[in-house]
């Protein structure tokens, strides 16, 4: 078994399994905890309306923008670049279709009920490059900003690395980096994605799920009180 076969076979299966089991374990470990009922008389009984905080908190209030603009802009830049590259790059969609066939014997449409278009490679390359640049900027910021430097730990740097690596290896594979066989580059790319999947449940990448729970919970508590969202 060569490196690419390993990356496409057991490494992929194990990493996806660890990802799924790990994510479920961490989410259930939190959601199965008791939650005391709030017996106070609500100001606004329709607390569910506070779920709008999930959308509202996607951009800071005007009063907070000055001190946070860098983080917000860079955050959006690398998230958008990363996610668009992940889901709209033609080879990725083909890969998802392959996985779908492997799981259900049908294509994406058959497995999840819909398919989506891909974007031209030029746009994907540009967005990936923006994402890489933004990730480098946030790393530098984390290293030089006194607040971020103080509060950072291994998770912050390792999560950064496992996010950065697939972008760089993916761009390298796409560009057929001089002197390196494509198969090896592709294997590195797959392995870097698998590293991300393995780390995902254990570190802060989990915020991809918990962000909705945290914002939604606070939104409902605050809405119930009529407090500022």
């Amino acid at each position: 078994m060569d490196l690419l076969e390993f990356a496409r076979g057991p490494a992929l299966q194990w990493s996806v399994s660890i990802f799924i089991v790990g994510v479920l374990w961490r989410l259930l470990g939190v959601f199965l905890l008791r939650s005391k009922k709030d017996l106070s008389e609500p100001r606004n009984p329709a607390a569910w309306k506070g779920l709008r905080l999930i959308a509202l908190r996607s951009w800071p209030r005007r009063e907070f923008l000055e001190g946070t603009a860098f983080g917000e802009v860079m955050g959006y830049a690398f998230h958008v670049g990363f996610l668009v590259s992940l889901f709209f790059f033609a080879p990725h969609v083909l890969f998802f279709a392959d996985v779908a066939r492997g799981l259900s014997g049908t294509d994406l449409q058959g497995l999840i009920g819909f398919r989506w278009p891909t974007l031209p490679n030029g746009i994907i390359t540009l967005l990936s490059a923006i994402s890489v640049a933004a990730l480098l900027a946030v790393l530098v910021h984390r290293l030089v900003n006194p607040v971020k430097r103080l509060i950072s730990n291994f998770d912050d740097y390792f999560s950064w690395f496992v996010t950065f690596a697939p972008l760089v290896t993916g761009m390298a594979a796409f560009a057929h980096l001089a002197g390196w066989p494509y198969e090896r580059l592709l294997a590195y790319h797959l392995l870097s994605v698998e590293l991300l999947l393995v780390w995902f449940p254990f570190g802060k990448l989990m915020h991809a799920f918990t962000i909705f729970a945290a914002r939604g919970t606070t939104g409902m508590i605050f809405e119930r009180r009529g407090a500022s969202l």
Binding site: R26, V30, P60, F64, G67, T68, G71, G75, N145, V147, K148, I151, S152, N153, D155, D156, K204, M206, H207, T210, I211, A213, A214
Partner: peptide
């Protein structure tokens, strides 16, 4: 506790 991303904002 599970949600902080150490953004420092």
């Amino acid at each position: 506790m599970e949600s902080c991303i150490h953004c420092g904002m």
